[in-house]
Design a protein around this nucleic acid. Structure first.
Lengths: 144, 144
DNA sequence: TTGCTTTTGTTGCAAATGCAACTATCATGG
DNA sequence: CCATGATAGTTGCATTTGCAACAAAAGCAA
């Protein structure tokens, strides 16, 4: 097989992964300042955004395995970032909600995350961000 | 803070991560068929593409920590996928090269990876892929 | 109702991960 | 040349991860 037939620099998954890695790196200091791991941040952002979520839904939003999530949420609850309580409609399910402390930390991190996003998108032409989002959503849908 | 000020569905890092996760999922069966982990695939693809790489360079390409990589490469070498030999120019460095077996497995996976990419990009207008790559490269450069 | 399947969440356990500490080598400034 | 700092790689060790196996609850079909 010839090398030119597979150029990593034109391979979408590679480019995506590379960018995602850089974004994480750029955000790591902010996370560390709040003593929050990347996974925990994703949980906080998801629950903050949705208001209330079952663990399975968090898992789908964050791609974190449910077993990992179970233990991660236990730790976050012990630390007082969120609380878990059994759902009334489905007594298998556990509903996760942020505490005031969890909200506060999340709302500290959100503007910092948006600053990283802004830095990442600096210099893009008007409409480029919308185009990027549109393409990413289409790709996501294609793989569903 | 108002919920509308931070919409995950318009947050670039979230969209990127979501897409990356789907791509990985779509490729997992192919990887499992070769008994290759995601990290190992990234190593194989990088070394195949470059021909020969130092471990540090592999780490930069794949975002895999050097300590993890050290052990991962040892395992891959034991399995016969690659070989490591000391560099002559810099005797600290270890040069990694694929064996015939490693090349063969990689060249089995490459077309499968490209098929996943093609499925992901299905229905995109002409020029959209180039536009996507261009945006991703710009974002990457912004965070360097 | 009963039996079978699916879904939600937790835990055991082995493997993977990543930070520190360390060695060895190279680069640079006096 | 030597001294200092930077870089490449490995290993120790504690934590994290994720696959299996499991329990409990819900859904569904007959």
């Amino acid at each position: 097989m010839d090398r030119s037939e597979f150029d990593l620099d034109r391979f979408t998954p590679y480019l995506l992964n590379r960018v995602a890695g850089r974004i994480v790196t750029a955000f790591e200091a902010d996370l560390a300042a709040q003593d929050v791991s990347l996974g925990q941040w994703r949980v906080l952002a998801s629950v903050w955004h949705e208001g209330e979520l079952m663990q399975t839904e968090i898992s789908r939003h964050t791609s974190i395995d449910t077993s990992t999530l179970s233990r991660m949420l236990a730790g976050m609850e012990k630390r007082g970032l969120l609380k878990r309580e059994k759902s009334h409609e489905d007594s298998r399910a556990v509903l996760v909600r942020l505490t005031a402390k969890g909200k506060k930390i999340t709302e500290t991190l959100i503007p910092q995350a948006m600053a990283v996003e802004a830095a990442a998108q600096e210099g893009l032409a008007p409409g480029d961000v919308a185009k990027l989002h549109s393409l990413l959503r289409r790709i996501y849908a294609n793989l569903t």
